[in-house]
């Protein structure tokens, strides 16, 4: 299994798609950092008397929640981890390299297992890289504008495990989706369509759907609000993580079953 994971890792890193996806994730994260920096500065003082709430303090993130939001801003990029998982499977089918992969590993579930493991590790690594980049970039910006690098750094341990877990599980989910829909273009369109459009519509239409959809489960699992998720209709972090794991397991199992039966002609 280790050998297959190493081979899959080599295959991933010797093509452009995963690097492009990781690069896009970095760009989006940078944009999110800027947005949070600009919109979540200062603190809100409770309104005195009948007046509106007032902002106090300097215009940079400084409360624990603001700093956690900043530290975890990359969490919105979990979709890129999912797409890396999708590519990990579909690239093999698209370029027919799956023939070579099955010849080396004729017990196909082992190959899918290796892909699940590889994708999970790559997803986790992407999360770590984005978190580190955010800490460095956001921290330096904070320092420059009168905030505190150290204060941001103190919030990282609070959000990092959740974000890393979510990225790993999304990559696993991606491998499952890619195994079910081995056509690369179809798998990517379906993934984007679901996470960017359909999920939002579903949440708007069906009361209480927010906690059940993969993004809701991910949001709960990442637990950026430190236990306040229920205010947004979410599960607790471990329930969210479990649900996300369940999604990953169901899709991976269904995908492996499909791939294992398929004639490769």
């Amino acid at each position: 299994m280790t050998a297959l994971v190493r081979a899959e890792w080599l295959k991933l890193r010797t093509t452009a798609a995963p690097w492009v996806l990781a690069g896009l994730a970095a760009v989006v994260t940078a944009l999110l950092v800027v947005v949070i920096f600009r919109t979540q500065g200062g603190t809100v003082a409770p309104s005195s008397g009948n007046g509106p709430p007032t902002f106090v303090g300097s215009g940079v993130p400084q409360t624990a929640q603001q700093l956690r939001n900043l530290a975890a801003s990359c969490y919105e990029c979990d979709l890129f981890a999912l797409l890396i998982g999708v590519v990990c499977v579909t690239a093999d089918f698209r370029h027919k390299t799956v023939t070579a992969a099955f010849l080396a590993s004729p017990r196909r579930w082992r190959l899918i297992g290796a892909k699940l493991l590889t994708a999970a590790l790559v997803g986790a690594a992407l999360a770590v890289a984005l978190l580190a980049g955010t800490l460095l970039g956001g921290g330096l910006a904070l320092d420059a504008e009168g905030g505190s690098f150290a204060a941001l750094a103190r919030q990282v341990p609070a959000v990092a495990p959740g974000v890393v877990l979510v990225f790993a599980l999304f990559a696993v989910l991606g491998v499952g989706v890619g195994s079910l829909l081995t056509n690369q273009v179809a798998a990517i369109i379906v993934s984007l369509g679901w996470f960017l459009v359909l999920e939002g519509i579903l949440i708007a239409l069906v009361h209480g759907a927010a906690r059940w959809v993969p993004s809701g489960a991910a949001e709960a699992a990442a637990d950026v609000t430190r236990g306040q998720g229920h205010l947004y209709g979410l599960f607790t972090w471990w329930q969210g993580a479990l649900l996300l794991l369940l999604y990953g397991a169901v899709f991976a199992a269904a995908g492996s079953a499909v791939v294992a039966r398929r004639d490769v002609t």
């Binding site: 010797t14 370029h95 390299t97």
Partner: peptide
Amino acid sequence: TSFHPTRRAADHLRSVAIAAR
């Protein structure tokens, strides 16, 4: 035609060699 077009020849062989130990 069963190669990834942007993968280098040596990397293709290495990926198979690693998988086959």
